[in-house]
Each structure stands twice: as structure tokens, then as C-alpha cells.
Design a protein around this nucleic acid. Structure first.
Lengths: 245, 245
DNA sequence: CGGTCTCTTGAGTTAAATCAAAGGCGGTGG
DNA sequence: CCACCGCCTTTGATTTAACTCAAGAGACCG
């Protein structure tokens, strides 16, 4: 389980918060931040789940290796996200730094204690779990019924929304992960990912800015191509007979 | 969000539990059970999330209708499962009875109150959320990297495990859902689902028992065909270079 | 500046989707 | 009780989107 922070507003001086944490991040504030080089593992699937981590800088990929050796990335954790939350004794997935990354570590005991006693924190954990669940369902929709093009556009759009909130209206989007990461996340091969990126570039929707960044020229077209429709509420009640499985 | 019960042991007389619920089911015990005919909707995606439901009999499909009218089933809820748990004001999915089904309804206020004040219940909700999250990740693995055959076998196996626990060693497995339901859950068309079922029958792995039940002749072969390997721990640490996206 | 790794592009293959049609089961009414 | 109708399911033929295989291009590093 990894928990995505939607907003992290530090209203109050951190010093005050050490003893009465108001946000999940506050709980981690006392911990020293640890550095991970790109590609370095934080923990492996099956390891005893002794710690919970907050990402303070950089990004992690969260994945499983399946029977035949293939990798399935179930999500990415970015600044402010918490990874390793679970009730099981072992981590159900591995986590690895995509790029230079910093995390704060907290023992599960401490984390559990903090969230058990503090209703505010508890609700935040619950809220994040719910959001993560919703994200997982979105991903299921993507994997079970979107085309390669729609998957890529959805991915870019999601990362745009995440970055946009902090980087104002800057249209240059950092993509720290490799094509392989994207492929393993989107259920596609690197070749298909590459082809779809080329297609978007050819159509002028995006422009390449080195290998790990793009400029989004036409966000609304990108959104349209992501195939989420307008989430048109009315249509939901009709049991529309659209085909394609 | 819907929560799966792993075990529902009523150690104590229910009467005693009314005031001090020990399990999530106990919270629903006072509520009258409502009947749903097959195909009947419990709630729609986007509806205001006023209630939480416990399935006491039968099964529900939990799904979303996407932009082009297609349906994606994100899960099924069976006896003992709780559906509708979320923090959002609106349900993020629809829920519909697959067959004759009974549910107990609880207002979100009551449910939240009960779980806020009772640590035991709260932990159960948390545990179920974690399990559901793990199931969602399994489903992502299935959708992003399993073949049609593996998907079907995984599906049958999962339902076998669920049913087995209560119906002893009886190898006849009820499949209340239609081929369309299976397809929308597994990311396949009804034709492909049907073909894969025929293939399993031809190979003698299963035998048809009417339309909505099968006999599993060779559970271990079925497990092998599900493609989950032996979850061999050692292989996990090797960054094996298996192909297929 | 050579080596390695990542990415791109092209050509051919394939698993599953689509299109099409027939078969079986269940319900309804004569 | 049987005939008919509608729905779900099965099976077959064809198409297609994405995968696989292959080779070349660009980036990064010692």
C-alpha cells in the first residue's frame, strides 16, 4: 500500500507539531532523511514489513515480479507519498528509486501507534487508502479497456495534473521513469510506448525536451485522447450497449 | 470500496453483540435485510454515498461504465462483504445484484460512528481495505500481463478458494455471473471467455454442470494454468529479464 | 572515443477482438 | 404439454492492435 498526499499545507510551525502531529508528514519530520540513488531498492516484496516510508524528494516505482520474471508496476510514489502501509507482516510489493530520491523512515510500531491514538492522522490514512483504491480502480479500467494511445495519454495527463499543482502553468513535464517503467505500468511493451510517444509528437500534441521531459502543447487534446470522456453523469444510468469486450 | 470478509466466526450469541459489536457483521445485525432480484441495482456511480451495505446472501457486481458505454467490473461482492465504504460524498462505482441477493443497509453516519469509536471494528475496516488493495493489485497483474487462459483459470481458482472454505471439498463450483460479467471483469470479450471455457472442458480440467456451475476435475492443473507460478520467493530478487512487455 | 544502455523505427507474427451465424435453455402462452 | 420467442452461449471466419524480432540511432560514461 502506498498513500498519495493530495495537499501538504504546513499551516503551523513544525516545531510545534513534533508532539502533536496534525498531518501524516509531521509524523515523519523528526526522522533523518535517507538518500537513494536511481535504481536502488528500498525494500523487496516478501521482506518483513518493519518500516513505513515517506518520500520527501524524487520518485519510487512500486512493483511485483511475476512468475515468468516479468515486472508489473502497480504505481509510482512521489514527494509526499507514504509507502509500506499494510497489515500483513511482509511487504506485498517491492519499491525502488527511479532517480535520486530521499525518504524518511518510521518503524511500523511508531506509525501504528501515532495513527491509532490520533484521530486526525487516522482519518488521513483512511482517506489516502480510499484515494489509492480509487486510483487502483482507474488503473483497472485503463488496463482492461483502453488502447495503447489512450493509456499513454492518461499517464501523461495524470502526471501533468500532479506536477501542475506545484509548478504553476509550466507546460514542461518531467518524466523521470524510463520507457520500460511506463510499459510495465501501462501494460505495454517499450516499443509500443515509444511508438505512441512518437505519434503524439508527430501530431504536435507534445514536444520532446530531452529524454525525460516533454512539453505539452495541447493539453485539452491530450485529455480528449485519454478517452475518459467527460465523465458524463447522465450516460451512466443508461445501460449502453457499447462493444469492445 | 468494498470490503471482503475472510472469516466470520460468530463466537458469541448475537444478542450480546448488539451493543458491543465485535465484528463488522455485528454492526449490521439489527438492520432488516433487503431483497434484490437478479439485475437489480443497489446504487449508481455518482449517487450520494449515504449508505453502506453488507451482503448477507447472493452476489453483487461492482462496476463502472466508461466513456464509450463499455462496462468494467472492478470486483464482485459476496456473502459477508461490505460495499459502499468511502470518504467521498459520491459512490465511485455502481453496484448491482447478479442473482437473488439480500443486503443489510446502514447509514454512513452510523457506520462511521461505530468504526470511529470502536478500535476493534476500525482495525477490521482497515484490514479489509488492505486486503482489497492487495486484490486490486492482483487484478492489475492479471489485466496487464496474463493471457486469456490464465485470466479465466485465475478467476475460477479464486472463486473455488472462496467457496471451498464453506462448502468443504465439494468440487462443484457455482458461477452465478454470466459470460459477459466474466468478460467485463477479466478484460475479455464473451466470445473469448466462452472459447477458454470450452478449451478447459476439452482438456478435462473442468466439466460443465448446467450454465452457471462447473465441476473442477483437476484443481492443481487449474492452478498451474493460472500462471501465478509458485510465488517462488527466491526469483523475486533476481531482476530476471523475462520478455512480454 | 569506444562501449553500453536506452530509445526509436521497421517488418512480420499472433492473441484476442470483431463480425457472423447457429445452437441451447428458459419462460410464456396457447 | 408443446410451440414459440428471446436471451445467453458457443463456434467459426476474418481482422487488427499490440507483441516479437531485428537493426540502427542517440545519449551517457568512463
Amino acid at each position: 500500500m502506498f498513500l498519495t498526499s493530495h495537499r501538504r499545507d504546513h499551516h503551523l510551525a513544525n516545531a510545534i507539531l513534533f508532539d502533536t502531529p496534525e498531518t501524516l508528514s509531521d509524523v515523519f519530520l523528526r526522522q533523518p532523511s535517507e538518500h537513494l540513488a536511481g535504481g536502488q531498492s528500498l525494500f523487496f516484496e516478501g521482506d518483513e514489513a518493519r518500516h513505513v516510508f515517506e518520500v520527501t524528494e524524487g520518485s519510487l516505482r512500486v512493483f511485483r515480479i511475476i512468475a515468468d520474471g516479468r515486472r508489473v508496476i502497480t504505481g509510482f510514489a512521489h514527494e509526499g507519498d507514504v509507502v509500506g502501509v499494510s497489515l500483513r507482516s511482509a511487504y506485498p510489493y517491492s519499491a525502488e528509486a527511479i532517480c535520486e530520491t530521499r525518504v524518511r523512515r518510521l518503524s511500523r510500531r511508531s506509525f501504528d501507534a501515532a495513527t491509532q491514538e490520533n484521530e486526525l492522522l487516522r482519518n488521513q490514512v483512511f482517506a489516502r487508502l480510499c484515494d489509492e483504491m480509487a486510483a487502483a480502480q482507474d488503473q483497472m479500467v485503463l488496463l482492461s479497456s483502453k488502447t495503447a494511445e489512450e493509456r499513454l495519454c492518461t499517464f501523461l495527463l495524470k502526471h501533468m495534473k500532479r506536477t501542475l499543482s506545484k509548478q504553476a502553468l509550466q507546460p514542461v513535464l518531467d518524466i523521470p521513469m524510463t520507457r520500460l517503467d511506463m510499459g510495465d505500468y501501462l501494460g505495454l511493451t517499450i516499443e509500443t510506448v515509444s511508438r505512441m510517444i512518437s505519434k503524439l509528437i508527430a501530431r504536435g500534441v507534445i514536444s520532446p525536451v530531452g529524454r525525460h521531459a516533454i512539453r505539452v502543447n495541447n493539453p485539452s487534446l491530450l485529455a480528449q485522447m485519454a478517452g475518459d470522456g467527460d465523465e458524463c453523469e447522465d450516460q451512466r444510468r443508461l445501460v449502453a450497449g457499447g462493444r469492445r469486450h
